[in-house]
Design a protein around this nucleic acid. Structure first.
Length: 273
DNA sequence: ACTGGATCCTGATCGC
DNA sequence: TGCGATCAGGATCCAG
């Protein structure tokens, strides 16, 4: 589920909940496994650790502890929420007690998410992080020239490529369709058939889509919730995603849905070429 | 090197 | 009302 804006929203929510110099005082986990096995000795490594800060890279959430970094990936349906008292709900898998006061609980019905623990000085070389492309809102590394150089010889459909985390991170199925709509490019257009002018527009569209969604607190299609339980409201701004058969906001043509890489891909046949 | 499809898992929704 | 089929925000892997 969560793409970059949703993970960023959760990160900001957790930051607000965790006072400076907080300490992990207890750890609980369910019997069921997440996508990958939990790291060895996780519980004892976490207890008594200080939470120094939180950050996000791509769709990963990092808990920077005094010696290690706890990595959390939310898969399709992962969420974090706060509970004042220990209260286990269906599909809760992992929770952290802070300062003996409250719990931060990871819930994930489909269990495509996972956690890992790495020494902080090895974080950037870890297998999760090392291959990742630039952040879409980092103007230093994610430039129009970068996008053009990386993609101009590829024959794959553009939508597949902008969802490739090695090219640019954080763009998932919703924001890929939305960014391509803003750029006027069909999702199945071959990368090497796209003009430089369109690439510059696409670069701008990816950045503006992601930034607008962060400002809106993410997109709540079904189960996404902010840490405090609130919904994101970017879904009100979706131009094409989930709108097959409905009129295009620009030209009233019917929005179409095609399948690419087994994912629904929405576009306006008139506005996108 | 590319593409499409299957896969991990549960739940919501839709059509019959 | 019930039941099976289909589809979901991710990401990897494999055959062709």
């Amino acid at each position: 589920m969560p793409e970059l804006p949703e993970v960023e929203t959760i990160k900001r929510g957790l930051e607000e909940m965790i006072p400076p110099s907080s300490v992990i005082t207890s750890v609980w986990r369910s019997k069921e496994l997440l996508r990958f096995p939990y790291p060895r000795g996780m519980k004892s490594k976490l207890i008594k650790s200080q939470v120094v800060s939180l950050s996000r890279r791509a769709k990963y959430l990092f808990w920077h502890l005094d010696k290690m970094t706890l990595i959390s990936h939310l898969g399709m349906t992962g969420t974090w929420r706060k509970e004042s008292i220990s209260h286990i709900k269906k599909h809760d898998h992992f929770s952290i007690q802070v300062n003996h006061k409250f719990w931060l609980v990871y819930n994930d019905p489909r269990r495509f998410g996972y956690v890992d623990l790495v020494p902080s000085d090895e974080l950037n070389q870890s297998k999760w992080i090392v291959h990742l492309g630039p952040e879409p809102n980092c103007e230093k590394n994610f430039t129009p020239a970068y996008l053009i150089e990386k993609l101009k010889h590829k024959t794959a459909p553009i939508k597949n490529i902008i969802m490739d985390q090695k090219i640019v991170v954080g763009v998932g199925n919703i924001y890929a369709s939305e960014a391509l709509f803003l750029a006027g490019i069909r999702p199945n257009k071959a990368c090497n058939k796209i003009t430089q002018a369109k690439y510059r527009l696409l670069h701008k569209s990816i950045m503006s889509t992601i930034n607008a969604a962060i400002e809106a607190g993410g997109t709540t299609i079904s189960d996404f919730r902010q840490v405090g339980g609130g919904k994101g409201y970017f879904q009100q701004k979706l131009n094409v995603y989930g709108r097959a058969g409905q009129p295009c906001v620009n030209c009233s043509s019917q929005i179409k849905n095609i399948t690419l890489q087994a994912r629904s891909s929405f576009f306006c046949p008139k506005c996108q070429k």
